[in-house]
Design a protein around this nucleic acid. Structure first.
Length: 757
DNA sequence: AATCCACTTGTTTTT
DNA sequence: CAAGTGGATT
């Protein structure tokens, strides 16, 4: 115990040792937050607190896993494994399953993921005869989600003037009906969405005091990580659970609250003292990660925000370099400058590529850096994009499993009923769904006896439905005997899912097959892990309840050599790199165009930049471009307002704009003013008339004349020869025969190519 | 049911 | 431009 805490500085130690009442630990960036949490848990366990009475809530599964690991190393792995440690969702899902009867759900209710929710909403919009251009599923789901995070049920929603006014103002006054219907359909399908997990936990605790009491007494200590990103629903769960013993410790940094767009409420952390008046406040202000210059730069930025918990983050590390600001003419040049810089730094320092990260505001910015790195043969890894479990082929398999376990899971049913194609089209599906609603029964009842519900179908269709039903039944029988791994192998062959992929030869089908194999491998490992814990049979339920809350973020590593990291700033939270490049510091990108009309949103963008800067240990480089190709056209961009927030004494801004090698597009927006500025102007205003009528043998393009038979080099398709021209006014095209990609028609005003002769 | 074409859209993302 | 969608076509 003594030995344990001597690894900590004084502030950390105080925070770790106080466990008698509520406490808020403000952990500045790089101040050893995770360390404090793990040591706190370790100390609790060492002082005899039973591990299963400690609840530790994190934001990602990965964070939970890592923390468990570290606690295990500090004390005893077995004890660590018995902690209630996990995300809000996984911990309370576990509780909800064991209390399912109290909220009127069967034990094996389904978790609808965002795609399921959106699909359901799409069909509801249609059902109510609403315009899907107005009632976009993502918008509607967003509203419903926000309501749920504020614990507003459909009834309350319809009666709440704020929501009604808001919906009316945005011309979506029927959201209340959609919400009510969505709620009902989820219940009928025995399904919960992500927000429901928290909402029903609150309802459970609200309506069943005896249950709440049981958990209040069970959990002696509650710890919450990343408290600045909790929402109201989460706040209230913690509040209720801690009501008896008051031993709640939350850790966070209000300067790093960046998830308000999905309901996080920074006020939870700002008002902690109000919520828990007897609470103690600890501040971890020494940053161990970054140089003084980086910390001070971040401080100068965040000082521009209002309403923060006062703190003085400082570093005793070396002063370090000043922060370099790079100005590029274009987005392409920005890519080249960053790639070149990484190449140089790597050569002079011999550091690993793993030490470099390029952080951007939006995923769309990644492409250019990808290309510039590839051009220089610098290895990189991009994070983000579709998660493994959201890929179509994977979701299909999971949907089968879901339907086997929960025969009322309508969204899973809709996914699998005609996949692979078995001749049960939209019409039949609609009939089944209608009958289901008319008779108030589950999907499976209709399938079991279509006659009973007078399905208006012919004998052919009836046969197809019966075959499907039989397939499901046989798999369902098997699912009670075999473990998921064995079951899924059978499932893949019996359903024909594997065959459907095997029949195709293209690259994408190959990758789908690989993914399916990877899924099987994952299941195999899952079963094996359980076996090692002495659990012999691993059924669908065990697997699904784990997987339904898993995301790519949790997978990590795949240590295939060292690589430069490319990711969004959001994804970089909690990570650190020796050298960080923050790119695209331009108005309308960073801050994002969607935040320009609100001070609160701008402040969140500023916090986002704060997070980005504080990822850096040794050097931090900021860049922006003066023009950028976006949404099909090139636009001028102006430097981000945040550049003015930064302490200029810490910045290294080059006097003259550097002239690194520049890639020129076929339709350059800005070239050296030495040649033909007139052309650039006409291009820019894109009102230039195509000087030739269709089907001529030459066409002017920029300053160049294109002619039939000419060789070009296209950015993507490579070398090719022009076969002819077509189209007119603003949409002239040319047909090009490429050496490797066959013949293509390219829109002249967009095509990126250079002339070869 | 599959393919093609016209058309829209274009944050951040965990669970 | 690129990805995704919805409708029409075959």
């Amino acid at each position: 115990m003594e030995k344990l805490i001597q690894d900590l500085n004084e502030k950390q130690r105080e925070a770790v040792l106080f466990n008698e009442g509520p406490s808020l630990i403000i952990a500045g960036a790089g101040s050893g937050k995770t360390r404090v949490l793990t040591y706190k848990i370790a100390v609790l366990l060492k002082t005899g607190v039973l591990p299963w009475t400690v609840m530790a809530l994190t934001f990602t599964n990965k964070a939970a896993r890592e923390m468990k690991e570290r606690v295990g190393q500090l004390v005893d792995p077995h004890a660590a494994s018995r902690l209630w440690m996990g995300t809000f969702h996984s911990v309370f899902l576990r509780i909800l399953r064991s209390e399912a009867e109290h909220i009127g759900f069967p034990v094996h209710f389904t978790i609808y993921d965002t795609a399921d929710s959106k699909n359901l909403i799409k069909s509801l919009v249609k059902e109510l005869g609403l315009d899907d251009k107005v009632y976009k599923s993502s918008k509607v789901l967003g509203r419903i989600s926000a309501a749920k995070n504020d614990l507003i049920t459909p009834d309350a929603y319809a009666n709440h003037p704020d929501y009604q006014i808001n919906d009316t103002r945005s011309r979506m006054s029927r959201i209340k009906d959609l919400y009510a219907l969505y709620w009902r359909r989820c219940r009928e399908a025995n399904a919960m969405d992500f927000d429901d997990i928290l909402l029903y936990t609150n309802l459970l605790f609200r309506d069943h005091p005896e249950v709440l009491l049981r958990y209040q007494e069970h959990f002696s200590h509650i710890l919450v990580d990343e408290y600045q990103d909790t929402n109201f629903s989460q706040y209230l769960i913690v509040k209720r659970l801690a009501e008896r013993h008051h031993r709640v410790c939350v850790v966070g940094d209000d300067s790093q609250s960046i998830y308000s767009f999905r309901g996080a409420n920074i006020d939870n952390i700002l008002n902690f003292k109000k919520h828990y008046p007897e609470s103690r406040l600890f501040k971890l202000e020494q940053n161990y990660r970054s140089t003084q210059n980086i910390v001070n730069l971040a401080n100068s930025l965040i000082a521009k925000n209002r309403g923060q918990i006062p703190k003085q983050v400082f570093s005793k590390n070396e002063l370090g370099n000043r922060i370099q600001v790079m100005t590029a003419y274009s987005d392409l040049e920005e890519g080249n400058m960053v790639a070149a810089r990484i190449g140089e730094m790597r050569l002079s320092t011999h550091e690993s590529f793993n030490d470099f990260a390029i952080l951007y505001r939006t995923n769309a910015q990644s492409r250019i850096f990808e290309e510039s790195l590839r051009k220089r043969n610098l290895p990189y890894r991009i994070y983000g994009g579709l998660s493994f479990y959201q890929r179509k082929e994977i979701k299909d398999v999971i949907s089968y499993l879901r339907f086997l376990l929960n025969p009322n899971d309508v969204e899973a049913f809709r996914r699998i009923i005609n996949n692979p194609p078995r001749g049960i089209g939209d019409t039949t599906q609609q009939k089944v769904l209608t009958a289901m609603r008319d008779h108030q029964v589950g999907v499976h009842q209709i399938l079991e006896s279509p006659e009973t519900y007078e399905l208006p179908i012919n004998s052919g269709t009836r046969k197809k439905l019966a075959d499907f039903q039989e397939l499901i039944e046989s798999l369902r029988r098997q699912s009670t005997e075999d473990n998921v791994y064995e079951l899924t192998k059978v499932l893949l062959s019996k359903t024909g899912l594997m065959k459907a992929e095997a029949d195709q030869t293209d690259l994408e089908a190959q990758s789908r097959r690989d993914n399916l194999m990877e899924l099987l491998t994952g299941m195999y490992n899952f079963c094996n892990d359980r076996l090692e814990q002495g659990i012999e049979s691993v059924f669908i339920a065990d697997y699904l309840s784990e997987v339904s809350l898993l995301t790519d973020q949790d997978e990590e590593k795949s240590n295939e050599g060292e690589r430069v990291t490319l990711m969004t700033i959001h994804a970089s939270k909690g990570l650190e790199f020796k050298h960080v490049f923050i790119v695209g510091l331009e108005e309308d990108i960073f801050p994002s165009g969607h935040s320009l009309d609100s001070d609160k949103a701008i402040e969140e963008e500023r916090r986002l930049l704060y997070v980005a800067i504080t990822r850096a240990e040794s050097t931090c480089t900021i860049s922006y471009a003066k023009s950028r190709f976006r949404n099909g056209q090139t636009n001028y961009s102006s430097p981000s307002r945040f550049l003015n927030d930064l302490d200029t004494r810490l910045l290294d801004v080059p006097q003259q704009i550097p002239t690194a090698s520049r890639t020129v597009r076929a339709n350059p927006v800005r070239t050296e003013p030495t040649y033909s500025p007139k052309r650039n102007l006409t291009r820019l205003h894109s009102s230039s008339k195509p000087s030739d009528a269709p089907s001529t043998s030459t066409v002017s393009h920029g300053s160049n004349d294109l002619r039939i038979g000419q060789s070009i080099l296209h950015e993507r398709f490579g070398k090719g020869q022009i076969l002819g021209f077509d189209g007119s006014e603003g949409s002239s095209t040319m047909t090009v025969e490429f050496e490797h990609s066959g013949s293509k028609r390219l829109l002249l005003k967009f095509a990126k190519f250079t002339l070869l002769d």
